[in-house]
Measured scan of single mutants.
Amino acid sequence: MATGGRRGAAAAPLLVAVAALLLGAAGHLYPGEVCPGMDIRNNLTRLHELENCSVIEGHLQILLMFKTRPEDFRDLSFPKLIMITDYLLLFRVYGLESLKDLFPNLTVIRGSRLFFNYALVIFEMVHLKELGLYNLMNITRGSVRIEKNNELCYLATIDWSRILDSVEDNYIVLNKDDNEECGDICPGTAKGKTNCPATVINGQFVERCWTHSHCQKVCPTICKSHGCTAEGLCCHSECLGNCSQPDDPTKCVACRNFYLDGRCVETCPPPYYHFQDWRCVNFSFCQDLHHKCKNSRRQGCHQYVIHNNKCIPECPSGYTMNSSNLLCTPCLGPCPKVCHLLEGEKTIDSVTSAQELRGCTVINGSLIINIRGGNNLAAELEANLGLIEEISGYLKIRRSYALVSLSFFRKLRLIRGETLEIGNYSFYALDNQNLRQLWDWSKHNLTITQGKLFFHYNPKLCLSEIHKMEEVSGTKGRQERNDIALKTNGDQASCENELLKFSYIRTSFDKI
């Protein structure tokens, strides 16, 4: 039985969820670079991206490699990797027998973001014989899940209580170790020597080791999670996991709180800001991140802002960003909400898709409305799209047979046209069989910064309504002859009103 693990408890099935942008060198404390989270699957090609990484700022997932063999891993080693800020997950990587050479110096898994409450997941690794993470000293947050690894031993010899604050939620089941077939031998045991430290858990006094050649490092209890030197002297209180010299914040392997210019500090002093819960960055760093993602459509890219001495992905609820200094300031009234469309555009074809934009005031991208039916549609669209004030790209209304009016965009005031449909149009209306009105132009103002209007096959939309939009939106004169079809717009509506004058002759039985 794995020490510190839980057996036999019912657990939810383990679901495996399925960018080499360097964020800056980590400095003297770390020998390499800070790398983003990685999802490495199918083959070993991307694994080489770990070569210079000291910190993975995010998670590391290595999974679904069915053609790899043990010899493929023999020359692979990433000794610079010290810390993973989120979680480490391995799933069905064939041929991998140990992690001792792959990650010989991995010391800390912070667990800032977890995989279903777990910071370390080893699942269905069919050839893994031992973990071998002999320098792993601290899992700051989260638990361990090690399950269905039929060859995995050296679990009962690990004292997880020396690595985690609590072992109650560890789930370590259905491994070879369960069948008591392992016969784990710690260093020196074969020669009758006791080389590794022994600890007591559940009444068992057991030597602690990761492999037959690597003991588990056990520091004096007084050192807590700070770690200790090879001689057993406690590291500085700002260290986490390990250090090369005692009581020196510049000799830590990793930091308990924050890293700044080669030393570990309790908090980031001005003019620095907390970033990702582990390091200090200056304003320029946060500003660069903001600008890199301002026009990016890459998933996970955030326009970072500053709030409460932190550089964070977005302002919290009730705050909006001051564009001059990136500071989050309290909103006066309802907060603006910028919604970034991942692929640059979004099609609204149902109430469900409209709900995804609920509360958005600025759309960074283009909207395509293609709704053919739905219950209580006008009210639903207004509830979900009615706060949109600005669209950076274009607005396209296409084959939306259920629409009679666009009044559900009740606050839309600006279409920038930074991206144009077919390279020309910022407003595009095609084949809307029941569209009769755009907006009530006596109450609604709309500016279209650039781009043209396109109207074709809107049989109940009168040309007068379209011409009014040209005047109000500032697009009059931009359109070419064929942009607004004269014969297919309003051709099934009563669009022309003329005053009919009647004269009559009164007659009676005795007068003409």
Results as ranks from 00 to 15, higher is better:
Gln245Gly: 14
Asp178Pro: 04
Gly318Pro: 06
Ile82Met: 05
Thr320Lys: 04
Asn309Arg: 08
Cys234Thr: 01
Glu33Asp: 08
Leu233Ser: 12
Thr140Ala: 10
Thr140Trp: 05
Gly227Ile: 04
His226Gly: 13
Arg297Thr: 09
Gly300Lys: 09
His290Phe: 06
Thr85Gln: 12
Ile158Tyr: 06
Gln245Met: 14
Asn309Met: 08
Ile82Trp: 12
Asn170Gln: 12
Cys311Glu: 01
Pro36Arg: 10
Pro249Gly: 10
Glu130Tyr: 12
Gly241Tyr: 04
Asp86Tyr: 02
Ala198Gly: 05
Gly183Val: 09
Arg74Leu: 02
Tyr273Leu: 09
Asp72Cys: 08
Leu327Asn: 11
Lys217Val: 09
Arg46Glu: 11
Asp178Asn: 15
Met321Thr: 09
Asn175Ile: 14
Lys176Met: 09
Asn138His: 15
Asn325Ser: 15
Ser237Glu: 11
Lys310Gly: 03
Pro31Ile: 05
Leu136Phe: 05
Thr211Ser: 08
Pro187Ala: 12
Cys239Asp: 00
Ser284Lys: 11
Leu102Ile: 01
Ile201His: 14
Leu174Arg: 09
Thr45Arg: 15
Glu57Ser: 08
Ile146Cys: 03
Pro334Phe: 15
Cys53Gln: 00
Ile158Thr: 10
Gly262Asp: 14
Glu71His: 02
His28Phe: 09
Leu133Ser: 10
Asn117Ile: 01
Cys252Pro: 03
Asn202Asp: 10
His214Thr: 09
Thr140Arg: 09
Asp277Leu: 12
Phe91Ile: 11
Asn105Val: 04
Pro246Val: 07
Ala198Pro: 10
Glu238Thr: 09
Phe73Ala: 05
Pro187Gln: 04
Tyr87Gly: 01
Val218Lys: 09
Pro187Gly: 11
Leu120Val: 04
His236Glu: 10
Phe103His: 00
His59Asp: 05
Pro271Asp: 02
Asp288Glu: 07
Met137Val: 12
His307Arg: 06
Tyr94Pro: 07
Ile122Thr: 03
Gln299Ile: 05
Thr45Val: 13
Leu96His: 00
Leu114Phe: 01
Lys217Glu: 09
Ile82Ala: 11
Cys223Gln: 01
Glu71Trp: 02
Ile62Trp: 02
Lys80Met: 12
Phe283Ser: 07
His59Val: 13
Phe115Asn: 01
Leu164Ser: 11
Arg279Thr: 07
Ile139Ala: 02
Glu130Ser: 09
Val108Gly: 02
Cys252Thr: 04
Ala190Met: 03
Asp261Glu: 13
Ala190Val: 11
Gly32Glu: 13
Pro31Lys: 10
Thr329Trp: 12
Val167Leu: 13
Gly241Met: 03
Ile222Val: 15
Asp247Ser: 09
Ile306Ser: 03
Asn105Tyr: 06
Cys268Gln: 00
Gly333Glu: 13
Lys80Arg: 10
Thr68Gln: 13
Leu90Cys: 13
Pro220Arg: 06
Cys243Gly: 00
Met38Arg: 05
Glu314Val: 05
Lys80Asp: 02
Val218Glu: 10
Gln276Val: 12
Pro197Gly: 15
Asn308Gln: 14
Pro197Met: 12
Leu29Gly: 13
Trp160Tyr: 05
Ile109Ala: 01
Asp75Tyr: 14
Leu29Thr: 11
Gly262Gln: 08
Ile109Pro: 00
Arg41Val: 15
Asp177Val: 06
Ser143Asn: 12
Glu97His: 12
Pro271Ala: 11
Cys286His: 01
Ile306Lys: 02
Asp261Val: 09
Phe285Leu: 13
Met65Gln: 06
Ala190Glu: 04
Ala190Ser: 10
His214Gln: 15
Tyr154Ala: 14
Ser237Phe: 08
Arg297Ile: 07
Tyr154Asn: 06
Cys223Met: 01
His302Lys: 11
Gln276Lys: 09
Glu314Gly: 04
Leu90Thr: 13
Thr194Val: 08
Met137Asp: 03
Leu44Phe: 10
Leu102Trp: 15
Lys294Val: 09
Asn195Tyr: 07
Asp169Thr: 12
Asn295His: 15
Gly58Met: 00
Gln245Asn: 13
Gly262Ala: 04
Cys301Asn: 06
Ile82Thr: 03
Glu130Leu: 04
Asn117Tyr: 10
Gly142Ala: 01
Leu155Cys: 15
Thr199Phe: 12
Cys196Met: 03
Leu326Val: 15
Leu120Ile: 04
Cys223Ser: 02
Pro104Asp: 00
His59Ile: 03
Ile84Leu: 03
Arg279Pro: 00
Asn309Tyr: 04
Gly192His: 07
Lys193Leu: 04
Ile163Gly: 01
Ala156Glu: 03
Glu49Gln: 09
Cys182Trp: 06
Cys215Lys: 07
Thr107Phe: 03
His214Arg: 05
Leu332Thr: 05
Leu233His: 14
Thr250Ile: 07
Asn105Ala: 07
Pro249Phe: 02
His48Asp: 14
Asn309Ala: 09
Phe285Lys: 03
Pro187Leu: 09
Tyr87Leu: 00
Pro271Glu: 05
Ser143Pro: 12
Ile40Val: 13
Gln61Phe: 06
His307Ala: 06
Leu131Thr: 12
Arg41Cys: 02
Gln61Glu: 15
His290Met: 13
Lys251Cys: 05
Phe103Met: 12
Val167Arg: 13
Leu240Val: 07
Leu327Gly: 06
Ser77Thr: 15
Arg297Ser: 12
Leu120Trp: 03
Gly203Val: 09
Gln61Lys: 11
Cys196Tyr: 02
Tyr94Gln: 05
Pro197Ile: 13
Arg41Gln: 06
Arg263His: 02
Cys243Ala: 00
Arg256Cys: 01
Phe115Gln: 04
Ser98Tyr: 04
Gly32Asn: 12
Pro220Phe: 13
Thr45Glu: 01
Asn295Val: 01
Leu106Ser: 00
Arg141Cys: 03
Phe78Ala: 03
His307Met: 06
Gly142Pro: 00
Leu152Trp: 01
Glu49Lys: 09
Asn282Asp: 08
Pro334Val: 08
Leu106Tyr: 00
His212Trp: 13
Tyr87Val: 00
Met83Phe: 04
Leu240Asp: 03
Glu231Thr: 09
Leu44Pro: 07
Ser244Met: 15
Tyr94Gly: 04
Asp159Asn: 13
Asp288Ser: 04
Phe91Gly: 15
Leu29Glu: 13
Glu180Ser: 08
Ile56Gln: 01
Ile82Pro: 00
Gln303Leu: 07
Met125Gln: 06
Met38Ile: 13
Asp288Val: 09
Ile222Leu: 09
Ile56Ala: 00
Lys67Tyr: 13
Thr189His: 05
Asn202Ala: 11
